[in-house]
Simulated assay, not measured.
Amino acid sequence: MTFSQAFTAAPADIDELGHVNNAVWVRWIQDLSVAHWHAVAPDEHRDAFVWVVTRHAIDYRGNLAEGETVTGETWVPEAPRGARFDRHFRFVKQGRVLVEGITTWAMLDRATGRLMRVRPEIAAPFLR
């Protein structure tokens, strides 16, 4: 299941080279992932768990200038192993991939802050 969301580069997103700063791409990766969680996960999961990033692997293949829009896409290709939840992503403009990669997330119990195993019922809505 692929989740998509559009992002438009604002003036504050632009670096001295005239394109979206790498730190903004990382923020968009997180925003895209969180939006997917909120769109798919049931209320009881959103209330009980919170996610943290443990690793980013990002390939930058193109640039985006101020005012341009890109479509972010994210998906989970396979069931998680233990607490590790690998999420793939890409940002596409007019059929061209500008940024792509994999982010590894860990799920925490919201009340205790402890690392939790991603049970099949939590992963299921992302694997359809």
Rank of each mutant, 00 (worst) to 15 (best):
E78N: 06
A106I: 10
D43R: 14
Q5I: 08
E100G: 05
R90V: 10
V99L: 02
I14T: 02
Q30I: 12
R119V: 11
D15A: 10
T54M: 11
D109S: 00
M116A: 13
V97W: 07
L32Q: 07
V40W: 15
V70M: 02
P120D: 12
L98M: 09
F49T: 05
H88V: 00
W51T: 11
R96Y: 00
G72T: 08
T2W: 02
E16V: 08
E78M: 09
L32I: 07
E68F: 08
M116Q: 15
R46D: 09
V52A: 12
R27S: 14
T74H: 06
R84I: 13
V24D: 04
T71M: 13
H38C: 05
V99F: 07
R61W: 03
H88I: 00
P125L: 12
A10Q: 15
P11Y: 08
N21F: 04
G101W: 09
A10W: 08
P120E: 12
A83W: 12
W51Y: 14
R87N: 03
R128I: 00
F7L: 06
R128L: 10
H19K: 03
R46L: 15
G18W: 10
A35Y: 07
F49I: 04
T103K: 02
A123T: 04
E68Y: 00
D109A: 01
V24R: 15
A6I: 04
A79C: 01
F89D: 04
G62M: 07
F91W: 06
